[in-house]
Structure formats: structure tokens, C-alpha cells
Write a protein that binds this DNA or RNA. Structure first.
Length: 565
RNA sequence: UGGGGCGUAGCCAAGUGGUAAGGCAGCGGGUUUUGGUCCCGCGAUGCGCAGGUUCAAAUCCUGCCGCCCCAGCCA
């Protein structure tokens, strides 16, 4: 790969990498890692990081590791490890044989800590957590040194050894780096390296009762794996001096930490805390609810890995806090689905249409194109008969200006079928329209006429006799405000939940072909949107479809703007 | 005794002294058997503000202003 390819669509991280390649700092090697903590499910924000790390490795002919940063046994579980691996794989990335765990390095980290103690750069502190906090000082005042700061190396060595052996209770002692209690950077005020935690770890069991802190562990993990570029989010910028300090003291391989802005999206929330609250309090149907910004939610909603990767690329990478418009994500989705989704016909809110001049017992098979964007997807046959269903909102008793659809006296085209003209609308005793009586023009088979007569409206339909019933779930944004966290006093983000984020339609009709639809397939319901088979609620006999996203709807826009004026 | 970052269009974002890329959103128009797709066109005399250096400044200097992060034995 030439460097021209790399600079295209450049970002500041690529600039740094290229500078390193010029200077030879890492021998032209690029090795990144995606380092999740296995304490929750991945979301679209993680996807950005995954695409970034694996993407850079790919761009520069390097490698990217999948590494679980499992240094806190209290929060971490095996269940999350599996789901994270599955998500990364689904997104289309391959860590090959480089699956690592921070816990695999616990022995080595312990040895490094001993080394630091021997150099007089770390000490065991007996101060209680509360006291450590007091001694740390504040943002504007310096901290003060712990009375145990100047213990002898021998004593520190012995105490640390006894910590490891389990001679002390949780919280009784910690190992601290001896740096600078005066530092303006609080991270440098003798940060804790090890805490005592008599807890079972999901991988190391009860082998350890002391566990390394993030700042101590992370740089070592990177160094051990010979990571060249350790990419993390902005809030770790203040930690970089500490990251560098540890590696310098140890005189080991020293990766470059680079920080970028995490992804924020409007109309949703991204924090682990809020996401789990939505699940726990039943606002959504689990972590994979199609309205959730989790990878599993997006997947169940019908998002494609390609769309998510395209999105990651288009949003760019920078250091300024920003909120990306979710419309961009949706655009990427439509862009991908437009090319790959088979077109089918379904009627979501049915209105019966009787074609009066079509023979009672006649049926025919009409040819339908599967995807006008892709001829290789071929054609299929659709049954047609005297009674069909069309969409309720494709009929208006009084046609507004520029209305191309059905109305008394209006002629429209049934896609792939015939032109029909509306003769009469039949109402029930409540005044609701329950049936349309139409006539068809037998000379317009296939949906066109030799006389060149213009018919502007084209409708989707389904033959009543041949249709199958199905459930369709229409999803909208989970929140009805751009920034759900922007609340008045006494309110919480859940007060901004969109009450109409899920609409379930149980009386929908689908064309016969769709009875074969399987989870994992993408369809465009003609004129309505992209849909997929729901993997959770669909049974052998009962199909449930999720609306992935709508099509752009110019008519809705015209009506909306018309109402405003 | 405070430290670290960030400000380019409604939203992202390139740009690294030579006269403001691109995408999304929006608005017009064309094509169309999806009011879809596709195609064409439209937005910064200006880069947080004010000075300064220079033939030339979003880019360099000075001073302000605004926003974000940091006081876990979380990551």
C-alpha cells in the first residue's frame, strides 16, 4: 500500500503514524489494539474505536489485537467476553491468533512492580482510602505525602509480598508509585498501582488477591504486546504522563498513546449506566432491543456491518467533542441496503380493493423485478386476483394538490400489474372507508400502456387470496429530543423517551414469497422502508418483521411543509 | 497550585504561510413502473473574539472569550 492511499481522508492519527514511519520510531511497524473491559455490551461508540484500530492496522499493513482489559474481577464476567468477541467478528474484523487478556500478564506485572520498588519508585501505603483521598489535595491545592512514603525498600518488598500472599484485608494496604504529591496533574500524585481484592477472577480464579489498577496495567499490556499506537479516548489525556512515566522507569518498549474524541450521537444515550438502566427498568426489551445503540441492538434492527463501517469512516477522527447527527448513520444504512435489499410487497395497514371488471375466478402470475439496482438479483412471480389490498393511506376521499395516489375517479398503477381507476369508496356505519371498488384496464398488463398515457402514482399491493398475515414492528428514535440528557430540574433522561418509539402492527399482509424470509436477510418493503425478520419473536408459523429504517419520503415532506404555511 | 484539551456552515470534518476539500442535513431542478435510487445546481468575502508580524494568515505571535476533562483502592 502506498502512502498516497494512507493520506487520503487523513486524520491526525494517521499524520502521527506517518511521522513515526518517516522517523523510523517503530521501524515502520503499526500495531494497535482494541482493549475493552468485559463488563458490559458494546455499542456504536465502541464500533468507532474498533473500526479505527483495526482500520489503521489494515491501512498500514499492520496488526490489531483484541485484548480484554480484565483487571477488576468485581465487575467483569465471562459472558461479556463472548458477546464482545461475537460483536467484533460480526463487524467484520479478525484478530487472528491475537486474543489476549490483561490477566495473562499478572505475573509479569507483579515482577515489574517489584522492580519499581527496588528502584525506590514505589511503596506500600497503609493509609485508608478515605485518607488517601484527603492527602491527595484538591484541584487547586497540592497534596501531602503519606507518612509511609519513605519506608525502606526492604520493608516495601516484604509488605508487597505479604499483600500478594493474602495476609491483609481488602483495603488495608495499597502499592503506590512514588512520583510527586505537588503535581498539578492529580494522576501523578502517587497513584495507586495495586489494591487488595479478595475476589475470584473470571480467568485466574483465586490465584490473586491483589489486582493492578488501569494506569499501571494498561501501558504494560501495550508494551508486552509491542503495541506501537495505543489509541484511547480524550479523558485519558491526563493519564499520558503517567503512562509514559511507568514505561520510562521500567525502561521497556514504549508505545505512543494517542487520544481521540469518543462518538456521541443525537437522539440516543451512550453511557453504560444509562443503557443498563433502560434495560433494567424495562424501557426496552433487553440489550439487543432494536432501539438500542448497542451492536446487538443495531444488528437485530437490521443494520449491516458495512453500513456501520462506512459510518465510522465518514464521521472522521478528531479531538473535539462532537455530536454526530444520527441521520448520517441512517444515510449509510440506506446507501448499503439500497444496493443489496430485495424489493418485496407488503401492505401494513390494509384497505380492501375489489376490481369489479376482473373475472371472479381468474388468477395470474405477474413478473416482478427483485432489485432495480442489481439485475443479477433476478425476478420473481407474484399472484394477482380480483381482490387485493392496498395501503390505507394511499387513498384519500378528497385528493390534495399534487396527490398522485388513489382518490375517487383517479387512475393509478399497481406496480408490476395493471392500471386501476377508483370508482367508489364504501364506508361502514361509522363512516370509515372499508373497501374500494375499482376497475382495471386489461391492456395495461405489467404496468404500462401503449397509448403512452401518463400515470404518476405507483402503488404496492398484495393479492388478498394469496397474502399471508404477519406482524410488523415500526421503530423510531428512542428519545424525542436531540440531547436526552438536557432535562429540567427534577427530571431525568428517561423523561425524554419517545412514547412512539415502537408501534406494533399485527394485521399486515405479505406477498407469498416472504414466507421464506429468514433472520439475517434484508428486504425493502416497496415504498415503505427496509425491514428484516426479527430473530427473537419470529416463530415457524408467525413472522415478525422489524423496520430497519424508512425510505426517504418526499411526499411526507411536502405535506409537512404545506401544513406549516 | 492548578493541570490537560478543544473552538472551521445547522451537524461532522479536511486544511500545517499562497487566497476555505468532502460528507450529512436543508433547498431548487432533471430522470424514474418505488413521491425510493440516480444526476445537476445552491451555502463560509470567512475559520471563537481583538490586536500584531507578513507581499500574503484558518495556519505564526500576543491578549482575551467560550466549552470539555481531572480530586475511584473504576476503566
Amino acid at each position: 500500500m502506498s502512502s498516497d492511499d494512507n493520506t487520503k481522508g487523513g486524520n491526525f492519527i494517521k499524520a502521527i503514524i506517518e511521522e513515526h514511519n518517516r522517523s523510523g520510531r517503530f521501524d515502520n511497524r503499526v500495531h494497535t489494539r482494541f482493549p475493552p473491559e468485559p463488563n458490559g455490551y458494546l455499542h456504536i461508540g465502541h464500533a468507532k474505536s474498533i473500526c479505527l484500530n483495526f482500520g489503521l492496522a489494515n491501512d498500514y499493513n499492520g496488526k490489531c489485537n483484541l485484548r480484554f482489559d480484565d483487571t477488576n474481577p468485581i465487575k467483569e464476567e465471562e459472558e461479556y467476553v463472548e458477546s464482545i468477541k461475537e460483536n467484533v467478528r460480526w463487524l467484520g474484523f479478525d484478530w487472528q491468533d491475537r486474543l489476549y487478556f490483561a490477566s495473562d500478564y499478572f505475573d509479569q506485572m507483579y515482577d515489574y512492580a517489584v522492580q519499581l520498588i527496588k528502584h525506590g519508585k514505589a511503596y506500600v501505603d497503609d493509609l485508608a482510602a478515605e485518607q488517601i483521598k484527603e492527602y491527595r489535595g484538591t484541584l487547586k491545592e497540592p497534596g501531602i505525602e503519606s507518612p509511609h512514603r519513605n519506608r525502606s525498600i526492604e520493608e516495601n518488598l516484604e509488605l508487597f509480598e505479604r499483600m500478594r500472599k493474602g495476609e491483609f484485608a481488602d483495603g488495608a494496604k495499597v502499592l503506590r508509585a512514588k512520583i510527586d504529591m505537588q503535581s498539578g496533574n492529580l494522576n501523578m500524585r502517587d497513584p495507586v498501582m495495586y489494591r487488595i481484592l479478595h475476589a475470584d477472577h473470571h480467568r485466574t480464579g483465586d490465584k490473586w488477591c491483589i489486582y493492578p489498577m488501569y494506569d499501571w496495567a494498561h501501558g504494560l499490556e501495550d508494551s508486552i504486546e509491542r503495541i506501537t499506537h495505543s489509541i484511547c479516548t480524550l479523558e485519558f489525556e491526563d493519564h499520558r504522563p503517567l503512562y509514559d512515566w511507568f514505561l520510562e522507569q521500567l525502561d521497556v518498549f514504549h508505545p505512543q498513546q494517542i487520544e481521540f474524541a469518543r462518538l456521541n450521537l443525537n437522539y440516543t444515550v451512550m453511557s453504560k449506566r444509562k443503557l443498563s438502566l433502560l434495560v433494567r427498568d424495562g424501557y426496552v426489551d433487553g440489550w439487543d432491543d432494536p432501539r438500542m445503540p448497542t451492536i446487538s441492538g443495531l444488528r437485530r434492527r437490521g443494520y449491516t456491518p458495512e453500513a456501520i463501517r462506512d459510518f465510522s469512516e465518514r464521521i472522521g477522527v478528531a479531538k473535539s467533542n462532537s455530536v454526530v447527527d444520527i441521520a448520517l448513520l441512517e444515510h449509510c444504512l440506506r446507501d448499503d441496503l439500497n444496493k443489496r435489499a430485495m424489493r418485496v410487497m407488503t401492505v401494513l395497514e390494509p384497505l380492501k380493493v375489489v376490481i369489479e371488471n376482473y373475472p371472479e375466478d381468474q388468477e395470474e402470475e405477474l413478473e416482478a423485478v427483485n432489485n432495480p439496482e442489481d439485475d443479477t438479483m433476478g425476478k420473481r412471480m407474484m399472484p394477482f386476483s380480483r381482490v387485493i389490498y392496498v395501503e390505507k393511506n394511499d387513498f384519500r376521499e378528497e385528493a390534495p394538490r399534487k396527490w398522485f395516489r388513489l382518490a375517487p375517479g383517479k387512475e393509478v398503477r399497481l406496480k408490476h400489474a395493471y392500471y386501476i381507476t377508483c370508482k367508489q369508496a364504501i364506508k361502514n356505519e361509522d363512516g370509515e372507508i372499508v373497501e374500494l371498488r375499482c376497475t382495471y384496464d386489461p391492456k395495461t398488463k405489467g404496468g404500462w400502456s401503449e397509448d403512452g398515457r401518463k400515470v404518476k402514482g405507483t402503488l404496492h399491493w398484495v393479492s388478498a387470496k394469496h397474502a399471508h398475515q404477519a406482524e410488523v414492528r415500526l421503530y423510531d428514535h428512542l428519545f424525542n429530543t436531540e440531547n436526552p440528557d438536557n432535562v429540567q430540574e427534577g427530571q431525568t433522561f428517561t423523561d425524554n423517551i419517545n412514547p412512539d418509539s415502537l408501534k406494533i402492527l399485527k394485521n399486515c399482509f405479505i406477498e407469498p414469497y416472504l414466507t421464506k424470509a429468514k433472520p439475517g436477510e434484508w428486504y425493502q418493503f416497496l415504498r415503505q422502508g427496509y425491514f428484516c425478520v426479527d430473530s427473537k419473536h419470529t416463530t415457524h408459523k408467525y413472522k415478525v418483521f422489524n423496520r430497519t429504517t424508512t425510505l426517504r419520503d418526499t411526499w411526507a415532506r411536502i405535506e409537512r411543509s404545506g401544513k406549516k404555511t
